[in-house]
Amino acid sequence: MTTPQQHQAPNADDFLMGGGGAPTAKFPAPGTVVSGRITEKPTVEQQRDIQSGEQKFWPDGNPMMQLVVTIQTEERDPTIDEDDGRRRLFVKGVMKNAVADAVRMAGARGLEVGGTLAVTYTHDGQAKQRGFSPPKQYTATYTAAAQAALHTPDPGTAPAPVPQQYTPPPAATPAGLSPQQYAAAQHNPATQALLAQQQAQAASAATPPPF
């Protein structure tokens, strides 16, 4: 028989500040999504009975394990003092399979700090025994840390303004001609002299008188 694993000790920050870790993520109804950045290295620990707190074992004596993942969510519970939005996911059973599939789909080797994990409670499965609650069914998506960082803007920097290129207004043409008409008149010997005279008059009128 495998020797029972001792209950995992809290991390240094939780021990120092007197906390017991982030609150457990809740999935009260189908459609609930819990998502966020992974804030600390996931750990593996032995499952415990909800009622008695005793460690759980499989019929063959092996401990029933689970993965504990802490993520930074947007959730805030007014009943929790100084709730910072961190939540713990206890990944086991159906959820473990969903998370593993998500990691494979992302091309990653596992969960890492900085990666983004989203778990969705989709529906209830079939109860295996009479009197037992039907197992919750989950799907999950995962974005590796490097890829997630590419899509996160730096909150301390703003995008540089794009310089606006100055476009000069179109030059005026004499006699109210359009640019196309003026170009055609310049190539017509019959109108070249007239255009030259009009341009000279316009330049003379625009020149300010000497002081």
Rank of each mutant, 00 (worst) to 15 (best):
A108L: 11
P59W: 00
T2R: 08
Q165A: 15
T39L: 06
Q197K: 13
A184Y: 05
T191D: 10
K128Y: 09
A190Q: 08
A100E: 12
A149R: 08
A144G: 14
K56I: 09
N97C: 05
R104P: 06
L150I: 07
S204M: 13
T116M: 11
V162H: 02
Y142G: 00
Q137N: 09
S35F: 09
K96W: 12
Q47G: 08
D154P: 03
M17N: 12
E75W: 09
A185Q: 03
I80P: 00
D60L: 00
Q47N: 06
A145I: 07
T152C: 00
P42H: 11
K26L: 14
A98Q: 08
F90G: 02
Q8C: 03
P189I: 05
Q5D: 08
P30L: 07
E45G: 10
T32K: 12
L16T: 07
Q201A: 14
P169S: 14
Q66F: 03
P42M: 10
I38K: 00
K41C: 11
T32S: 08
A175V: 13
E82S: 12
N62H: 08
K136Y: 07
T70M: 00
Q137C: 04
G115D: 02
P174H: 08
P189C: 07
V34S: 01
H7Y: 15
P210V: 01
A108R: 09
P174K: 09
G176A: 05
R37C: 00
G107W: 14
Y142D: 00
G19W: 06
T79D: 12
D101H: 07
N62W: 01
K128W: 09
A140V: 04
A145V: 06
L194I: 14
E112M: 09
P169V: 13
T24R: 13
A25Q: 00
P23R: 01
V33K: 14
D124I: 02
E82D: 14
V113A: 00
V99G: 02
T207H: 05
A206D: 04
K26D: 11
A196L: 04
